[in-house]
């Protein structure tokens, strides 16, 4: 039990920091408080950025939207994929149509989708980025969920349930989904990392979030020119993104139930 708590703590700490960060920020994140690219000093532990704003305050301010958007993308993508995957395993005809559609969508790179949005709706905020990430991310997750659901759908207990006339949705939620817990939690962790990549890439390309909003990816881009003057202005947000992605994925791994022992005969 203790080991579980220890392995969950980095993720919990990151989530708390990202959510409560805006309340803890010592300075206003959009107001200059020191010289541009000032080195860390009294009152500005991580120095100043290109306009002399406090890097620490911007760091504390810039994680929440990223976290919320990434979690939303991961949960929605995994949820849709799980339901579609289970339904496809039960209804092969419908499954074939969904699969062909997924094949087509897989061909479209997410970065391309983001750029199209950036060009079509300049200054549109985060929502279109989230929608693009969901639409273009679901096909990958669907493939995995469908493959995992196929073997469960062929089990005896699903046969018995369909023989007693259970509706498709009842089969999906009662019989199949509970047995995909391991796969779905792993998938959720992977989709979270992927979502962090997509959202940060979008911010870096200035699609979705616009200056002067505090945002980790945007900070990297804005301060890249001054990396030799105050490296922390770039390093701190980069590390924050990496630690968030890795720690949350690790937490999902800890929460994933281990496969149960199955009887195997020798010979």
């Amino acid at each position: 039990m203790n080991r579980v708590v220890v392995r969950l703590s980095p993720a919990l700490a990151m989530i708390l920091l990202a959510l409560l960060g805006p309340l803890l920020a010592p300075h206003e994140s959009t107001e200059p408080v020191t010289a541009p690219y000032a080195l860390p000093g009294f009152g500005v532990p991580l120095g100043g950025d290109q306009l002399g704003r406090d890097v620490l305050s911007r760091l504390l301010d810039g994680g929440r939207d990223l976290l919320v958007a990434s979690v939303a993308i991961a949960v929605v993508v995994t949820g849709i994929a799980a339901i579609l995957g289970a339904v496809s395993a039960l209804r092969p005809t419908l499954g074939a149509i969904v699969e062909r559609t997924a094949d087509v969508l897989i061909l479209l790179p997410v970065a391309l989708g983001i750029l199209v949005i950036g060009v079509s709706w300049p200054g549109s905020g985060r929502i279109p980025v989230v929608v693009a990430a969901i639409v273009l991310g679901t096909p990958f997750a669907f493939r995995i969920a469908a493959a995992a659901a196929a073997s469960v759908a062929a089990s005896g207990f699903v046969e018995v349930a369909s023989a007693r006339g259970e509706r498709t949705l009842s089969l999906v939620f009662r019989e199949i989904m509970p047995n995909l817990r391991t796969t779905l939690l792993t998938l959720l962790g992977l989709r979270f990392v992927e979502a962090v990549y997509v959202v940060t890439t979008a911010s870096f390309l200035e699609v979705g979030t616009q200056p002067p909003t505090a945002d980790w990816a945007l900070m990297i881009r804005e301060n890249a020119d001054g990396i030799l003057l105050n490296p922390w202005a770039v390093l701190a947000p980069s590390l924050a993104i990496a630690v968030m992605a890795v720690s949350v994925n690790l937490a999902f791994d800890v929460l994933t139930p281990k496969a149960r022992n199955r009887t195997v005969t020798q010979l």
Partner: peptide, 14 residues
């Protein structure tokens, strides 16, 4: 009513 073949898959493990 059917009692299916595979003894491990015959009951929902969850």
């Amino acid at each position: 009513q059917l009692i299916p073949q595979d003894s491990l898959g015959t009951l929902n493990p969850s």
